[in-house]
Simulated assay, not measured.
Amino acid sequence: MSKSLSDGTSVDDVDRLADPDASTDAKTASDETSRQVPSSRRGAVRTWVGEHPRAALAGAVAFALLLAVGTAYLAREPQVPDGTVAVVGEQEISTTQLDRRVEALKALYGLEEPSGTEAQDGFRRDAAKSAVVAVLIEQAADERGIEVTDKEVDTILAKLIRERYPDGGQAAFVEALGIMGANEDQVRDELRQQAVVAALFDDVTSGVEVTDDQVRETYDDRRTELATPERRELLNIVVETKAEADTVLGLLRRGRPFAQVAQTYSIDSATRSEGGLLGMASRKDLEGAYGDAAFGAEKGGLFGPVKTDTGWHVGQVQKIVPATPVTFAEVEATLRSTLETEDALSKWRSFLEDLLADADVRYHADYLPDDPESLPADVEENTP
């Protein structure tokens, strides 16, 4: 039985999952039937996904790639014919379909292909890998009876146009597509695929529950990291050489006012006019050695010289705001949501691992990724 947005999923919910991809254009005409999306069960997951960057091709084209821990792409003989990127089971992904997908991503997310032969080659291989995963996900969605109707795609597209082109509307949208070398049909295909991913994710991760004991145990384990960290208000002077930094430090130790020294010697135009005021910062906000020195000094104490990429630094601790612990009541709801998200992602990863382990995928030699079983580097960095 197919499921529809009318049973509870809002357009906002589907739009938050607009970053990931769900499918490819390699479906036959008989596959272009209407599809409906099941209702959302994991609002917290949608929020988490919505916050992730869209610039990377792999992250934009496949929500599955963003979440998967491992992959199982199989590059096997016999050879894939020219004009075909890959074969997934009996389904082919043509070079034309891959080009259409990339054009749609450019239109939706401002994706830019890199320059240079080697970089472009890597880009195309990553695009092929993402397209393969999209096909596998759509096949799994079809098996589960997940469908997305044209009317539902209309609703999603209308919302996108309202948000991105509030002044020019449909006309501005069409004009922008022309400039980017895409058309509305390509964008609609991409949005449909994203909605299928959202639906499949909901279907796979339904029934995830977190107990009160789990929430309490997580609070006990993460109490330190949940607390508001210590922050320090810092003054800072940047010079070009260590000799200059030693001179600055000597003047400060002899009692010269920090603001006066900063205005005279600092090359940091952003803080020089403010007497070297860097502002409040936690340890994680500061670069390695500089942060160690700043948080190793006492209130009112001087620190440095410390070398960073911007020069040699001498600083002073103006104020210290101690770390603030949080109570269980303050974070209970957030922790529960976090654990539900983590459990849902774990269930989703297991599903993908099983799905990909059973996949029969063959790449054309020109599109075979360097490591077909690994995720692109930018996706690895954003995997929770």
Rank of each mutant, 00 (worst) to 15 (best):
T338K: 05
T338H: 06
L339W: 05
E340L: 04
E340V: 07
T341A: 06
E342A: 13
E342S: 15
E342D: 13
D343Q: 14
D343N: 08
D343M: 11
D343G: 03
D343P: 00
A344N: 05
A344S: 14
A344M: 02
A344G: 07
L345G: 05
L345D: 03
L345S: 03
S346Y: 11
S346R: 10
S346F: 10
S346T: 15
S346L: 12
K347R: 13
K347E: 08
K347T: 13
W348Y: 12
W348S: 00
W348A: 13
W348I: 06
W348H: 01
W348T: 02
W348C: 01
R349I: 03
R349T: 00
R349L: 02
S350I: 00
S350W: 02
S350M: 07
S350E: 10
S350R: 08
F351D: 00
L352F: 13
L352I: 08
L352Q: 13
L352A: 11
E353F: 13
E353C: 05
E353D: 07
E353W: 15
D354N: 12
D354L: 10
L355N: 05
L355W: 07
L355I: 05
L356W: 09
L356Q: 11
L356H: 14
L356A: 12
A357R: 08
A357Y: 11
A357C: 02
A357M: 09
A357T: 09
A357D: 11
D358K: 14
D358Y: 03
D358P: 00
D358H: 02
D358V: 04
D358T: 06
A359P: 04
A359Y: 08
A359C: 12
A359D: 07
D360F: 05
D360S: 15
V361I: 04
V361N: 01
V361T: 12
V361P: 00
R362E: 12
R362S: 15
R362W: 03
R362I: 15
Y363F: 15
Y363V: 06
Y363A: 12
Y363C: 12
Y363W: 08
H364G: 01
H364V: 02
H364C: 04
H364P: 00
A365K: 14
A365L: 14
A365T: 13
A365M: 08
A365Q: 12
D366E: 12
D366A: 15
D366P: 00
Y367K: 06
Y367E: 01
Y367L: 02
Y367H: 10
Y367A: 01
Y367D: 04
L368D: 01
L368K: 09
L368N: 03
L368V: 08
P369C: 10
P369F: 11
P369M: 06
D370R: 12
D371S: 13
D371A: 11
P372A: 11
P372I: 09
P372C: 07
E373L: 04
E373K: 14
S374F: 06
S374V: 06
S374T: 11
S374L: 14
